[in-house]
Design a binder for these strands. Structure first.
Lengths: 162, 162
DNA sequence: TTGCTCCTCACGTCACGTGAGGTGGC
DNA sequence: TTGCTCCTCACGTCACGTGAGGTGGC
């Protein structure tokens, strides 16, 4: 919001690549690579080629990062997800440009499908992480019980376990 | 359990690399690579170098996969986690070999620390995935509402949004 | 002029994928 | 002998990391 070197142009706040990196936890190298791959294009390039990003690109960068890190998507998979969302955004932008209602309904149905697929994968990872977490929580309990035993009775050699 | 080509040697079931691959969802290349990195060593090599795995290695392979895919760990990070667990296993094996109780307590405390760190990271990812999931669920609702509107009233150009 | 951030190559790295060419047991 | 799985190189790939060498505005 009030970053020292943010630039105001017209109305909207814009950012340099180093600022985007700090805000998103990415590196400048990654941002340039994603641009090269056609995943994240800066709003504009300034004189001498300096990249200028808007808030929309910050959101997009965060989305890409989530899809990669939380769901293990490759950039090719990320691309597919983002493309269906871009289509939806285009639809919204062109809301009065009169595409036929039938076409709009079709686009929305594709968006619903894509979204539901994502939801499904998220639920899958959720249950997997849950199961893994429960295992670790149980192990934490066992370890603490063991430590308590050793503290109370440090000299006793127990016969259980072999 | 009753895989066709599983081998019985003494009492325990053993597996060939291709069987391990199928059981774990990994590739044989990955299993060999992890061995080369010192992360997963087969129980033994047979004549002509054929790798023989036991159930313990299947479990270990699954653990490595979980740490990689669910938590995004690099193999270097996986190594650290597994090493602290290996120490615990050694402790259990040497339970009657009389290490001092003080030393045992120390090892257990380190294991508790390591386990709690993992638990913390699991809880972090859990909340992140949850938040992401909730976003998607909300979007699913919005999309379905929109689709219903279009179905009920396909000809109307609404004035909301811009 | 000095600092800071930006830029474009371009080679390096991590974790494998993918053949190439060959061996061993039913 | 034919099929199948195994083996070891070894080059390729994906997603960046990491300098090298240079430009531009306070």
């Amino acid at each position: 919001m009030s970053a020292t070197s943010s630039v105001v142009e017209g109305q909207a706040t814009t950012w340099r690549i180093g600022e985007v990196a700090k805000l998103t936890g990415l590196t400048t190298r990654t941002l340039r690579y994603w641009e090269q791959m056609g995943l994240l294009t800066p709003k504009s390039h300034r004189q001498a080629g300096e990249r200028i990003y808007s808030d929309a690109e910050i959101d997009r960068a965060r989305r890409i990062k989530e899809l990669q890190e939380l769901l293990g998507f490759s950039l090719a998979e990320v691309r597919v997800v983002l493309e269906t969302e871009d289509v939806l955004d285009d639809l919204r932008d062109a809301y009065h440009a009169d595409p036929t209602p039938a076409h709009r309904l079709h686009v929305i149905h594709r968006a619903i499908e894509a979204n539901d697929r994502l939801l499904g994968r998220l639920d899958d990872t959720l249950t997997q992480v849950q199961a893994f977490r429960d295992e670790r929580a149980a192990k934490a309990q066992r370890l603490r019980r063991k430590a308590a035993e050793l503290r109370d009775d440090p000299g006793i050699q127990r016969k259980e376990r072999r």
